[in-house]
Design a protein around this nucleic acid. Structure first.
Lengths: 190, 190
DNA sequence: GGTTTCATGTAACTAGTTACATGATTTA
DNA sequence: TAAATCATGTAACTAGTTACATGAAACC
């Protein structure tokens, strides 16, 4: 049950509406816990009932009122409580892994195409992460340099590096499989 | 919707009951798509209705009848269809990443303890995978050696290597974070 | 004598997705 | 004039979890 907490983190960085949160979740913290706008609206209402967030309704002309949510003291307390409480280590549920095992003779062409698709998708996501790294954490601001990052910026950077690591892992895994499953085209009889 | 397919793969390797599948899912294919026994029973019934599996009831004394499921032709066809159809690239939903971002001053001790827990858990899982590798894929049976693996054994091995890669990634990420977040104990004034 | 194993199930719940609706405003 | 953006919502669905129940057998 961590969508609550992901929303609290995002709102703590910047108060906003459900709609804005849904948009933000297309990037940033959303890389690690995405959600549809319906799910976000529902959870926001629940959090308001519990007093974790407060809501200010801003009237607008020509469209529904905007509800701007802000983290309340109880919300911060909940975050602190949650951090101290052990959670399950992240567990990968890989559809691709099941497909590899599911492949039977006659499906190899489709399987290889699918692995290639996944490799390229992970490579593309890696590019996005690297761009964010370049934009938000330029060279001198590293972990060990003369002006190492601290506080929220450091935490943000560490999470981004985790994302990069994971995507690299996925991509290399796909490439490994392609190498192992693609019959080497015979260069031995010219 | 891949639990169906994970069950088909497992049943295709060896026909069995829901109970047996739940036990198997504690390892092997279950590393990549686990499920509770209730979920498994429900999906098995649905697959039987659809004709993907057939069910043979084996009476037993002193305990409920055992229902042994076997993959039917329609089940194999479904696997083939599913492999050819593109699926979403695996996406990591990391509770730990959210915790890193959620940490505020005063929660660092708890956060570091939590990261350490996760590092150790991933390390333990890595040990399990390496043991399986040693047991099922001893040295000579590699990808490039004189007798390279083929068929189902190769696919099993490739998935296992993926699991190892992922766990190494998680563990190294945790260690990185610990290094970056643990204040270096001052050795500079003896 | 208490726990674990075998083997299935019901019921109630939480989490998350998909489809649809509204309606003005800006952009192509 | 068609599509995308802003901003929320209802309704119906699928997926998955938690708690509980049964009852014999084997293990410690």
């Amino acid at each position: 049950m961590a969508l609550e907490h992901a929303l609290l983190v995002s709102l703590d960085e910047h108060a906003g509406s459900g709609y804005e949160l849904a948009r933000r979740f297309d990037k940033s913290i959303g890389f690690f816990h995405s959600a549809t706008h319906q799910q976000i609206y529902r959870v926001l209402r629940r959090m308001e009932e519990r007093g974790w967030v407060t809501c200010e309704t801003v009237p607008q002309d020509g469209r529904p009122d905007k509800k701007i949510y802000t983290v309340a003291a109880a919300g911060h307390a909940e975050l602190d409580r949650w951090i101290a409480q052990p959670s399950e280590p992240d567990h990968l549920r890989s559809e691709l892994a099941v497909k590899i095992r599911a492949a039977r003779p006659g499906t190899m062409v489709e399987l290889l195409a699918e692995i290639t698709r996944h490799r390229d998708a992970h490579d593309a996501r890696l590019d996005v992460y690297r761009l964010i790294e370049k934009r938000d954490f330029p060279a001198p601001a590293s972990l060990t340099g003369p002006a190492p990052l601290t506080g929220p910026a450091l935490h943000q950077y560490l999470v981004l590096r985790g994302g990069i690591r994971v995507e690299e892992g996925f991509r290399d895994w796909c490439q490994d499989m392609l190498d192992a499953l693609t019959p080497p085209s015979g260069q031995d009889h010219p």
